[in-house]
Structure formats: structure tokens, C-alpha cells
Amino acid sequence: MRQNALQPVWWVLIGGFSLVPYLWFVLTSWKSPAQVTAIPPEIVPEFHWGFYLSALRDYGLLRYMRNSAIVASLTTLISIAIGSFAAYSLTRFRLSWTRIYLMLLLAISMFPQIAIAGPVWRILNTLGWLNTYQGIVAAYIALSLPLAVWILATFFKELPYEVEEAAMIDGCTRAQALWKVVLPLAAPGLFTASILVFIHVWNEFFFALLILTNPALQTLPVGIALFPGEYTMPWGEIAAASTIATLPLIALTLIFQRRIVRGLSAGAVKG
């Protein structure tokens, strides 16, 4: 469409809508305790680091961060590895069930979490995996596989089959062809899928809440949701913890905006 004279107005509106509420919270984290409750609100913070110190020292923020980093990295690694094999198979073999399997994964990604929560809890309970890293990671792998496989499949599909065929004629096994030819070529796809799975898992709350009841193992979203304080909420500390929890995500988004946009909309709509 042709340029519209009102465009700059729309930019400010959209940008402001997306950023202002969040910025307000970030600014809150740098305020002094008196500033947080000031009426009228004070916009410019005094760049007080007290809330960060107390979030780290008194509220175990470092522990939540460590748990989130462990859980999100492990899940991303494993589900991308497993997902690559699946996506490769689903895009390379023209079999009757490959399409059905893709549809099944799509359907699963639409399940309301509560519909599987009870039995998942019971399985992990039977295995003795409640309140363990392996328990939450196993559940997360299953939850993130649909996302991983769908994104990887869109990338794998674009790779020409001739290259790996040539490799196999030259004596590579199929596994070697996948490892040495396909995966390096699909590296951008692997990377994009990894970012999206990582963000997805880093932010997940529902299953973390059920599976991790031991504060020593809880992830950031659980820590932030269950921030102690019934009548006087420690808003400064919550804002500080929230800022730290979102920093990796904001960095990823700013740096890899193009990939994220492409990955999320990967083939979502074919012309």
C-alpha cells in the first residue's frame, strides 16, 4: 500500500502500547522505596539498586535464575536433538503416516494444559520425579516438541534432497548424511527453533507450578508468581526480579527479531 501521512502517529502508538507498561515496571525497579508509592507517580528513578540487592539476597533470585537456566537449556538441547530427527524423517519420507503425525503434534500443541496435568503429575509421582530437574525437563520436552518439530520441518523442507543423496552415493550412511550435510545446512533453522523453544520454556509457569513445589528447585516464573507478601506487596523487589527475568528475553528479541518473526510465522500461512 502507498505511504500514509499518519504513519509516524501509528508507530508511536504501537511502540508506546508495547513498551510503556513494561518500561514503567523496569523504572520501578530502580526507584527508592518512597518513590514506588509516591502520588503523583515519579517517572525518573533515583537509580537505587536496593531492590536488586534485596531480591538477590532475601528472595533467592539467583537460585531461581540458576534453575531456569538449567531447565531451559537442557530442554532446548534435548528437544531440538529429538525434534531434528523427527522433522528430518517427516520431511524426507513420503509415507502415509508422516502427515498424520504432524497433524497430531499440532493438535497436541493446542491441548489445554489442565487436560493432561493430573495424569502427568501422577506419572512423575510414580517415577519419583516430582521436584526434580529430570521431571520438569521430561514434561517440557514433550510440551515443546510440537513447536520444535514444526519449525524444523519448515526449514528442512527447503533443503534440496540432492545434496544428501550425493553424500549417500559417496558412501555416507543416512545418519552421517543427516549429521554432516543436512544439519549444518539447516543451522539457521536449528538456531531459530532453539530460540523459540528456549523462550517458551523459560516462560512456562503452569507445569512448573505443579511439578516444582520445593523452593530450591523452582524456576523464575514460579518464584515471581509466588513472591511472598499478602497485604504489602514488595513491588520494588518484584519489579527488580521481573527485570532480571526478562533481560535475556529482551536481548534475544532485539538481536534475533528477524529470526523470531520468521520462525513464528514459518509457513503459518501459505499464499
Binding site: S18, P21, Y22, I199, A239, A245, T246, L249, Q257
Partner: peptide, 21 residues
């Protein structure tokens, strides 16, 4: 485009606390 992605990228729990505030 990156700015618009900010609400999508942050944890829902964080945006919940933010709106609660």
C-alpha cells in the same frame, strides 16, 4: 518489530505482576 515483540517475549507471570501493579 522488535519493540512489538516485547510483550510476547516476556513471561506471562511477569506481565501479570506488571498489570497487577
Amino acid at each position: 518489530r522488535a519493540v512489538v515483540l516485547v510483550p510476547w517475549a516476556i513471561p506471562t507471570v511477569v506481565s501479570s505482576q506488571m498489570w497487577r501493579f
